[in-house]
Each structure stands twice: as C-alpha cells, then as structure tokens.
Simulated scan of single mutants.
Amino acid sequence: MGTDAGRNFIENLSWDEVARRIAGGSTAILPIGAATKQHGFHLPLNTDRIQAELLAARVAEPIGALIWPTVTYGYYPAFVEYAGSSSLSASTFEAVVHEIATGILDAGCISLLVLDTGISTLAPVERALARLDAGQVMHLRIHEGPRYRRAAEALAGQSHGGHADELETSLMLALAPQRVDMARAEASPALKQQVPGRLTSFDSNSPNYSRSGSYGDPTLATSAKGEILLAAMLGDLTEQVAALMAEQPVGKQRPNPIRGKFL
C-alpha cells in the first residue's frame, strides 16, 4: 500500500491531524475482516483483513475518508475447528461493532461506512447499526452488489463454493498475489448439503468435510478473473458510497475536537 493511501488510516496519523480532518467533514470507514480465520492451505489466516484494508483504501481515496483500525475478531462459527481460527459469539460481536461505531460518530464524523468482508458477520452488523442514525451509517456488503453478483455468476466454473474458493482466490490474486500459494490450492469435495454448516477437517464422513478448509475449487482461480471481480466490487461500493454522500446536508456544523467549538 502506497504512502498516500496510508495517510487515510488514522493509526498512521497524529491525533490533532485526525481532529482537523474530522472537523473538516471527513467520512469514516470501519473495515471488518478476520485476522484469524482459516482460508484453506493456499491463503493466509488474515485473508479477510487484507481484503478489508485494501478495499477500504480504494473506497477512501476519492472521498478523503478516514479509515479506523480493522475489526479483526468477529462471528465466524463455521471455521473454529481449524487451527488458529477464532470466533466471538454473535452477541459479543454485535456489541463490539455497535460500541465502536457509536464512538466514531460521537467523535464528530459526519458519516460512517462499515465495510464488511464476512458472510456470518452480516446479520450481527445489521443489528448493531440498526440502533444508530440510518442517515449517518451504511453497511457495505462486498459480495452483494449487482455488478459483483453478475460477474461472479459469469466467471465461476466451480460446482459449489463460498469460502477460499475460485472467486475469493481470484480476488486475492488481484489484490495481494504475493499472499497466494496456488501450488497448495485444493478443491473441497461436493458437500452433501447445499449450504454448509460448521466445516470439519477431521470427520471424512461429515456432510461438511473439507480437508483443506476451502469450500469450492480454488484451483480454477486466475488473476484475470480477480481483476474483473475487483472492478465489479469497487463499482458497487462506489455507487453505495455516492448514495450516502448525496444524502449528507451541505454545510452541516460539526464540533471541532481541538477547540470544542463549532466551525
């Protein structure tokens, strides 16, 4: 990530610079992406975090948004059998997201974009944000936009998927190819039920058995597919962000966190 992009991450800034940008009307982005969640043999545990932060940087750049530290622990119950994977309870995760989001808005940010790379996290995040001002917050679900869905349907050659699969691996080949080891990519067997529950690497008789932890066929992934998926995803995110920004009142007064006055 380049130096300029890094200037939107508040952890790289001094507190008074963050204060000046908030007072100037900055939107905030809160990325959600696991740092300890298995992604097969070929992707690192922090795959979701990598995606969350790189996508947040792309979204932040044209609007000068401030990016808060990524929420790296979340509700990921399907993967806990695999070493290193962790999961909070849904209620704990919901409370964490709500408290962080409330703090960001209380600090004076005009609006908040919660960029969510998960699937099991979607419902708890929705509940957390439902208690906040709907005009100030937006839940960005990276896999649900119409452009991404069309691209995924057109590109996918796998018979099933949803985790560390052809699509996610292709996206990682576009975002962070140095973190992908295609030599270790391994397809999962066709599961005996359409939607998997908790995946297992130990019980080969389970309907949710996956030795590697992948659900789908990552061996079909390519960087070319990833570039198409990334462009579609960013198109969806840009459209969603523009819709929220258009609803923000012009010239809205905000508290200056430095002087405690209104500008």
Rank of each mutant, 00 (worst) to 15 (best):
A83N: 05
H139V: 01
R198V: 09
L199R: 08
A56R: 11
E186P: 03
K261C: 11
P257Q: 04
Q158H: 05
R21L: 11
L155Q: 02
L113K: 00
P255Y: 10
G24D: 12
T169V: 03
S14K: 14
G216T: 02
P255N: 13
Q194D: 15
A156H: 02
L129S: 08
G25F: 08
E227G: 01
K252P: 04
D133G: 07
R198M: 12
L199W: 08
P124R: 11
G24P: 03
V18F: 01
H98C: 11
Q158F: 00
L66V: 02
Q158R: 02
A57N: 02
V80Q: 06
V97G: 00
T27K: 06
S89L: 06
T47K: 08
G235V: 08
I104E: 06
H42M: 13
G226P: 02
G84A: 10
E11H: 06
D106F: 07
D203Q: 05
P177V: 01
L132H: 05
A34S: 15
L54E: 15
S85W: 07
V241G: 04
I100N: 04
F93A: 06
E186Q: 14
L140N: 00
N205Y: 14
A83K: 10
S120Q: 05
Q158G: 08
V250F: 09
A52G: 12
S86E: 11
Q253N: 10
L263V: 10
S120D: 12
H98M: 13
S87C: 03
A221N: 03
A101L: 04
L13I: 06
A5D: 08
M1F: 04
P189G: 11
K225N: 09
I258H: 11
Q194N: 13
P196D: 07
A176W: 00
T219V: 14
G118F: 08
E153T: 11
A83G: 06
Y215V: 12
A83I: 01
L263G: 14
G197E: 10
L112P: 13
I63D: 07
S87K: 02
P257N: 06
A95F: 10
A183M: 14
V250T: 10
R7W: 11
A151D: 12
R131T: 13
S206R: 06
